[in-house]
């Protein structure tokens, strides 16, 4: 069964772009526009992977990551960031992020990031 992905980005365009890239191989359970919605939707759908923009309104991606991880320590969260945001990305890792993709992103890097975090999952389950 296709793995489920939750997309979190305040830009509809970015959500759509990710959706286009991913929908052939994954089931997109939904798109959240801010950090609060992200946590709510995570609780509702329990997706396998969350792709989360680092800059979000209301509660930013780092805070939302911490929220989700405290709710489910096994959550897989991939941050969506730009190359100038290494410091923010480090904070995100401290908050529990499992990987990242950099904008502008390309399909292979998004796929790699997802298989990367899912591989960790598989290895620890085996």
């Amino acid at each position: 069964m296709a793995k489920q992905v939750l997309l979190v980005d305040d830009s509809e365009f970015m959500r759509n772009l990710l959706r286009e890239i991913l929908e052939r191989e994954f089931e997109i359970v939904g798109g959240a526009e801010n950090g609060v919605e992200a946590v709510e939707m995570y609780k509702e759908y329990d997706p396998d992977v969350v792709i989360m923009d680092i800059l979000l309104p209301i509660r930013n991606g780092i805070e939302a990551t911490a929220d989700i991880k405290s709710y489910d320590p096994n959550a897989h969260i991939i941050m969506c960031t730009s190359v100038s945001q290494e410091d923010k990305m480090k904070q995100a890792v401290k908050a529990g992020a499992d990987g990242y993709i950099t904008k502008p992103f390309q399909k292979p890097s998004v796929m790699d990031a997802i298989s990367d975090v899912l591989a960790v999952n598989n290895a620890s389950n085996n």
Binding site: E86, K90, V93, K94, T102
Partner: peptide, 17 residues
């Protein structure tokens, strides 16, 4: 683009395992 972040992620995984 993020050597430091990559290092953190690997160290984290290594520490977990």
């Amino acid at each position: 683009p993020f050597r430091g972040v990559d290092g953190m992620l690997v160290l984290e995984a290594a520490t977990d395992a």
